[in-house]
């Protein structure tokens, strides 16, 4: 076991536990306002302090983790669900028109500044978690398609795939039976990276008011609330900020650790 994997695993698990625990327990009601106790710095009662409405930041962080995980999870799911089959298909038809169309389509999506399009989508179809998920998810599709195809192409040239073809197996069956298990590591590592990027993107969209809407708590919106108060209550910015950094750091370390543990020569796309 390497150290990166352990630290990353612990940080990621911590966030998952916080999110799950929030369903049954939080120190305070995350949405209960308590004006007399507003803008408290971290203390024995309010571990992370309170915001300008006197809401408990610790509780809000716990519930906010839920939003982050849900958005990032579904967005990665969209990327894997559509990107991996497309990548497998493109690799199986290497050099053919299917490959060409899929890869050109990929390039085209990459040509759009992702955040701009996410903003456009959420702005036009309404702000909210669902549209944020779709906007982030769309940009995961080409990432997974590219990684899948990149991992699958060298495999198609390998002799065990030729042997399977000689054994009469079709492209679809070979893709599922031989290719997919051999690129699973690659996909797992890429998924952790996209997951961390999803959390950053969700935070950014919520920060500009296009992500999860009130009353759903979200780390990005907590930062937006903190902005005007940063000079008098810096903890309001520091707490959600550290939550995001530690989570993303944890996921990245987990990804790196997994990569080293699963296959030292694995290549992933990191943008």
């Amino acid at each position: 076991m390497n150290r990166t994997l352990i630290i990353g695993g612990i940080l990621s698990a911590l966030m998952l536990v916080a999110a799950l625990a929030s369903f049954v327990w939080t120190p305070f009601d995350h949405s209960a306002m308590n004006i007399p106790e507003r803008l408290q710095t971290p203390n024995g009662t309010h571990w992370f302090g309170t915001d300008h409405f006197g809401r408990d930041l610790f509780s809000m962080i716990m519930v906010g983790a839920r939003t982050s995980i849900a958005v990032a999870c579904v967005a990665v799911g969209i990327g894997i669900g559509l990107g991996v089959p497309l990548g497998l298909w493109a690799a199986a038809r290497q050099g053919g028109w299917v490959d060409e169309v899929i890869m050109r389509g990929n390039d085209l999506i990459f040509a759009f500044p992702s955040l701009v399009i996410a903003i456009l989508i959420t702005a036009i179809f309404g702000a909210g978690a669902i549209n944020a998920i779709i906007a982030i998810g769309i940009f995961n599709i080409p990432v997974f398609a590219r990684v899948t195809r990149g991992g699958a192409l060298p495999l198609w040239a390998r002799e065990f795939i030729l042997a399977a073809r000689v054994a009469g197996k079709g492209a679809a069956r070979i893709s599922v039976e031989h290719i997919l298990p051999n690129i699973a590591n690659l996909l797992i590592v890429q998924a952790t990276i996209q997951f961390s990027l999803g959390i950053l993107a969700e935070a950014a969209l919520s920060y500009v008011g296009l992500g999860a809407q009130p009353p759903t708590p979200s780390w990005g919106r907590m930062l937006a609330d903190a902005q005007t108060l940063v000079s008098i209550a810096p903890h309001m910015a520091l707490v959600p900020g550290f939550a995001i950094i530690l989570t993303v750091l944890g996921l990245n370390l987990l990804g790196d650790g997994l990569r080293d543990a699963l296959d030292p020569k694995l290549r992933v796309t990191r943008v």
Binding site: R158, E159, F160, A163, V166, N182
Partner: peptide
């Protein structure tokens, strides 16, 4: 018809 390839390392799915 069956075939035996060159590369003893590449001709089997390692999994």
């Amino acid at each position: 018809m069956q075939v035996v390839f060159q590369d003893p390392y590449g001709s089997f799915n390692p999994r």
